[in-house]
Design a protein around this nucleic acid. Structure first.
Length: 794
RNA sequence: UGGCCCGUCGUCUAAUGGCAGGACACCGGUCUUUGGCACCGGCGGUGAUGGUUCGAAUCCAUCCGGGCCAACCA
């Protein structure tokens, strides 16, 4: 059993399942997961979720995780992807150690399992053509028809399959199919193809094989071979679970065997992830390659400079559920900034330089000022010298001749602080013939060296700067979202259209940026914060020591920019940050909003009504239930759905002749408890249910407690009366006894009592619940409620 | 249209019959030599309708909405 027992927080439904399995010893406490990509493309954010789920769970529960390449299709797979995926996963921070596997290594075993199926009469060789197979499969509403080859003898099937393996046939001449059910409502169960003939060269197996297994056959067996316990995949495979189980059981894998659980894929607002969508962009040159920093591929993130830790944190923030969802990119940006804020040294760079001349500062080489790499709130040490001289650059946007309200930067005649340097005052604005500002003449206050004001005067603004003669030239690349609105929609409809939706501002190349010289001495992979601008690092492909090229990883939050953009007449073009949300289309009023005449709610379902039309005796039951027994139409409908249901109900009535009570038990409580199980498969009959209802009516057990009894009955049967005694659920309605429990509860929750008395009346639920808990469900909730209300009113 | 899956703040996600909570976003404030960070506060949600229950986001039913499945892909 895992040493982690009880200490692992079950953050999501999958971890809850794993935790329960570990605690119950289902797999002797083992946890084995796997990440099973097909090596046919590059990894993207979506994969990060799957990787960190699978690998994270194994780590948390002290299990092991496998990296398995699901390379069963020779036509789409390649060694290059095998290598790049490993590199990307290592970069992300996961190490699978010795647990690297290839599905193609199992081809021999898989072949053997196929023969097992044939020998059991559960698989056959079909010699129909591809189109015939497709056409005979039927549709979602019509059943398929059996193949004429379905009844071949085991010997013939075996012979044919062995000859398929021996490459005696052309592509498509035969396939191996599971013999399941051509009328199954699940299309995947309509005799699925298990093996096909493909004379293709496999990148690992060469020409050893000319038959290849298909996903539904291979994947579950790969899991079983490796001893995987929890096979996690995305929800589009939900329908495949039935065949996953069928194959494993048919081949002979017994419990504890692997089981499949599905979770929702990760989608990000405005990001396209599929190979199908990205390939055309690469081919058309709309992006520079699979590692384009605007792409959500792992290679793209890596080149942009995103720290792998940020990606791991991001998927952790997103959570695991079964609801299809699209995450706001702002969450990703947050995760990236959050990591970088605590780790990136700050340096100064000016992207759009405006020259300033300090008329009262001496000409010459100037001086070197000490500037810390980190602000006071980042617990890291370090500083560098920054050269300061008479001629400097500041950001053009940090000066305004006619400042908007609230502008805290340089204005004519105004002061601003140069970060870690001096306070300066703008004395004169120099313009060219067109009226464009080319230079500012300023004075500096020698008393403010370092940026402090000894006289105590307040300087609102602080701006970054670089010395003109010392600054390094750099190219800076700013990235914004790759697509204009509606891209994700387009991805589904017409992938080609994506080209037309590329955001022309998705990349902005700034050639003439100026950066402080200290960066020349730093390691190539240093991630910086350019003060007040954003996080950057050197582009690992195009940058070099001679030619500085920086990628913006993510901009800083900019609440001033947001404010001004809002008040400005603002064309939509003026947005400049990747955090800007795409305009969300007006959602059509949800169906819930009642508009127009309220539709009459149908009380009976069409299906059940039809069943009664076909069977008059059912119709008679419905009639009797709704009139003679006085049931509601809804209950009468449900209970006359089939004879099994009606019989059960009537048997219950024998033990407790209160139709509406028994009906309620049957259609709500029992229905919810038994799930998919048929009434006939229950370990008790109608009489027992009736007996239970009678116990409640007689006051022996509370209805709440009775539901727990019923749950036990569903699991293992038993006599209601005995169970009540055994489970200690005899109803406690002795007021004195209850009152003492109530007092304890109220003492334990003084704050809540105050809140209740202050008007938060729904806390009554909490109190009743606590009393019920304290009595292990035996208290009479009605009495409790009454007593509680009285106590609380005092 | 048959089967299966899913509907909780703008976006993700908790609550497993008992206080609808958290994160991001947004708004306001405090702090600040980054209009960053941090901190404080605010906004805002159980798709609808019935039923069961002392009590329903949770169980049942109907409706509405979304997704997946008819490759010899995975």
């Amino acid at each position: 059993m895992s040493t982690n027992k009880g200490h692992t927080p079950a953050r999501d439904f999958i971890r809850q399942i794993v935790k329960a399995d570990v605690e119950s010893g289902r797999y002797d406490g083992r946890v084995v997961t796997r990440f099973p990509p097909e090596p046919n493309g590059y990894l993207h954010v979506g994969h990060v979720k799957a990787i960190s789920l699978n690998f994270g769970i194994a780590e948390e529960f002290g299990g092991r995780y496998h990296l398995r390449f699901d390379d069963t299709n020779p036509e789409s797979e390649d060694e290059e992807y095998v290598l790049s995926m490993q590199e990307d996963i290592r970069w992300l921070g996961f190490d699978w150690g010795e647990h690297l596997y290839f599905a193609s290594d199992y081809f021999g075993q898989l072949y053997h399992f196929a023969e097992v199926l044939i020998k059991k009469g559960l698989a056959y060789v079909d010699s129909q053509s591809g189109v015939e197979i497709r056409e005979s499969r039927g549709t979602v509403t019509e059943p398929g028809v059996d193949s004429p080859y379905r009844m071949r003898s085991t010997e013939e099937n075996l012979d044919l399959f062995r000859r398929m393996r021996a490459c005696e046939f052309e592509d498509g001449a035969h396939v191996l199919r599971g013999k399941i059910d051509m009328a199954s409502p699940n299309m995947l169960m309509r005799d699925p193809v298990l093996y096909r003939i493909r004379h293709a060269h496999h990148y690992r197996q060469g020409d050893e094989w000319c038959i290849y297994p298909l996903y539904d056959f291979a994947h579950c067996l790969e899991d079983a071979i490796e001893g995987v316990t929890h096979s996690l995949c995305s929800i589009e495979f939900t329908n495949n679970r039935e065949i996953y189980d069928w194959v494993l059981e048919s081949v002979g894998f017994e419990e504890p065997r692997p089981h499949q659980y599905e979770f929702a894929r990760l989608e990000i607002q405005n990001a396209v992830l599929s190979k199908r969508s990205i390939l055309p962009l690469v081919e058309a040159g709309a992006v520079s390659g699979w590692d384009d920093p605007r792409l959500s591929t792992l290679r793209g993130f890596r080149r942009r400079g995103v720290p792998p830790e940020a990606l791991r944190n991001f998927v952790g923030m997103v959570g695991i559920a079964r609801t299809e969802s699209t995450i706001d990119v702002a969450k990703l940006d947050f995760a990236i900034r959050d990591v970088l804020n605590d780790s990136a040294p700050r340096v100064m760079a000016v992207l759009d330089p405006l020259k300033i001349v300090l008329s009262n500062y001496v000409e010459g080489p100037g001086e070197v000022l000490e500037a810390p790499y980190y602000p006071h709130d980042v617990p890291l040490q370090g500083s560098r010298g920054v050269p300061f001289a008479r001629e400097l650059y500041i950001e053009r946007a940090d000066f305004a001749e006619n400042p908007p309200k609230g502008f805290r930067r340089l204005v004519p005649g105004g002061e601003v602080r140069l970060r870690y340097a001096y306070v300066i005052r703008c004395e004169e604005v120099v313009k060219d013939a067109e009226g464009k500002i080319v230079e500012l003449r300023c004075s500096y206050d020698a008393e403010t060296r370092g940026g402090d004001t000894p006289d105590g005067r307040k300087v609102k603004g602080t701006v970054q700067w670089v010395s003109a003669q010392h600054a390094l030239d750099a190219e800076v690349r700013l990235y914004e979202r790759l697509f204009l609105d509606g891209a994700s929609q387009a991805e589904q409809d017409e992938p080609v259209d994506l080209l037309a939706r590329v955001n022309p501002k998705s990349i902005t190349v700034i050639e003439g940026a100026k950066i402080e010289p200290s960066v020349a001495d730093d390691p190539d992979d240093t991630r910086y914060q350019f003060e007040r601008t954003g996080y950057f690092w050197r582009d690992p492909v195009d940058g070099s020591v001679e030619r500085l090229v920086f990628n913006r990883i993510v901009p800083l939050k900019d609440s001033w920019g947001r404010k001004t953009a809002k008040s400005a007449p603002a064309s939509p073009e003026s947005v400049s940050s990747s955090t800007v949300m795409p305009v969300v289309a007006e959602m059509p009023t949800s169906s819930g909003g009642v508009k127009g005449p309220i539709r009459e709610r149908p009380a009976v379902s069409e299906q059940r009504a039809a069943a009664r039309t076909a069977d008059p005796s059912l119709a008679a039951r419905f009639e009797r239930y709704s009139t003679e027994l006085g049931l509601s139409i809804e209950h009468a409908d449900l209970l006359s759905a089939s004879h099994a249901t009606g019989d059960f109900f009537e048997a219950a009535l024998q033990a407790h002749a209160e139709p509406s009570e028994v009906a309620a038990w049957m259609v709500t409580d029992l229905r919810g408890l038994r799930g998919d199980r048929a009434l006939a498969g229950l370990p008790f009959g109608g009489e027992a249910l009736g007996a239970l209802a009678a116990l409640v009516a007689g006051g022996r057990v509370s209805r709440r407690a009775a539901k727990d009894v019923l749950a036990r009955m569903v699991e293992q049967g038993g006599d209601p009366s005995d169970l009540v005694a055994e489970m200690g659920l005899e109803q406690v309605d002795d007021h004195e006894a209850l009152q003492s429990v109530i007092s304890q509860v109220l003492e334990a929750w003084p704050d809540k009592v105050d809140d209740y008395r202050a008007g938060k009346k729904n806390l009554i639920g909490l109190f009743v619940g606590e009393v019920m808990k304290a009595t292990r469900g035996a208290a009479d909730p009605n009495a409790v409620r009454g007593l509680l209300t009285t106590s609380l009113e005092e």
